Amino acid sequence: MLKFLSAQPPLNLWLIFLAENLLVTGIGLFAGWLILKLSKRPIRPASRTEILTCTGTNLINTAITYLGFWLLQRGYLVFGFEVNWHIVPDFLLLFIAMDLAMYVLHYAINHMSIYNVVHKFHHHYHNPIPIDLFVLHPLETLSFGGLWLITLAIYNFNFYAVLLYLTLNVVFGIVGHLGIGPLPAKLRDSFLLKYLGTSSFHHGHHTDIKHNYGFYTSIWDRMFGTYKA
């Protein structure tokens, strides 16, 4: 695959990466819609602003993907492609590292004057639907993208661990913007899941910006006193 991509002219690469981002977005939104449909919850239609912003976010994410591939070609990013036991610890390291980094960035954005310019745009939707995962100010999308590339540049992760992380990133993002808890309360409160960033956990942040800044877990909120059940 890397040989195929490396042989492509820039325009083809851009189109391939754009198609990839749109496909991931489409699958995620369909899955979110299906969950809401099966739960028999009223689903409000996405507004024109949400649709246009989601499209813009995909264009920016395509540029970030293109930059990541450019860095990979020049050795600034290095991946291992072996299928071995390193996949598990690499995934766990990436999952925890990104969760902490995004917690810090999310907390900072919510407590700086830049909030009114950048992050308040996302919080315009107090009762989010899945598409709102992609309704972000361009500067915020670029910030998270830059954080992602910096994390990959610091450590040589296994490529399959990165793919697993990216898959779960979309899953957590869609679940966090359902506005409902798709799992039974008993299961959500189990030892294995109680520290994960559930839909109700992130929904709590949309209704109260002073709490629940974590993305994948509630660990850092519990540790730093920003957790709210």
Rank of each mutant, 00 (worst) to 15 (best):
M1R: 05
M1F: 11
L2G: 06
L2W: 13
K3Q: 12
F4Y: 10
L5Q: 02
S6V: 02
L13A: 06
L15C: 11
L18Q: 06
E20F: 14
V24G: 06
V24P: 00
F30M: 12
L36E: 01
K37D: 01
K37G: 00
K40Y: 04
R41E: 03
P42V: 04
T49W: 05
E50H: 02
E50N: 03
I51T: 10
G56T: 07
T57S: 07
T57I: 01
I60T: 01
I60C: 03
I60G: 01
T62P: 02
G68C: 10
L71V: 07
L72F: 15
Q73W: 04
R74V: 08
G75M: 12
G75W: 13
Y76S: 13
G80E: 14
E82Y: 10
V83T: 10
V83M: 15
V83W: 15
N84P: 07
H86L: 12
V88H: 05
D90M: 10
L92F: 15
L94W: 09
F95R: 13
A97T: 10
A97S: 13
M98W: 05
Y103M: 06
Y103S: 08
V104L: 15
A108E: 03
N110V: 00
N110M: 07
I114P: 00
I114E: 02
I114A: 15
V118A: 08
H119G: 04
K120L: 12
F121G: 00
H122V: 09
H123A: 12
H123R: 09
H124W: 04
H126N: 02
P128Q: 07
I129F: 00
P130A: 08
D132F: 07
D132I: 07
L133V: 09
F134R: 04
V135P: 07
L136T: 01
H137W: 13
P138C: 10
P138Y: 09
P138W: 14
P138T: 04
E140C: 08
F144R: 06
L147M: 13
W148F: 12
I150A: 12
I150C: 08
T151L: 14
L152K: 13
A153V: 09
I154V: 15
N156H: 14
N156W: 10
N156P: 15
F157I: 03
F159G: 03
F159I: 09
Y160V: 06
V162I: 11
L164H: 09
Y165H: 14
T167V: 15
G173M: 05
I174Y: 03
H177M: 05
L178R: 01
P182Y: 00
K186H: 09
R188A: 02
L192I: 05
L193T: 04
L193G: 11
K194W: 14
S199H: 01
H202I: 00
H202A: 00
G204E: 08
T207S: 11
D208C: 04
K210M: 01
K210L: 06
H211L: 08
N212P: 02
N212I: 05
G214I: 05
T217R: 00
S218H: 11
S218E: 15
W220T: 08
R222M: 06
R222W: 10
F224D: 02
F224H: 04
G225V: 12
T226Y: 13
T226I: 15
K228D: 13
A229L: 01
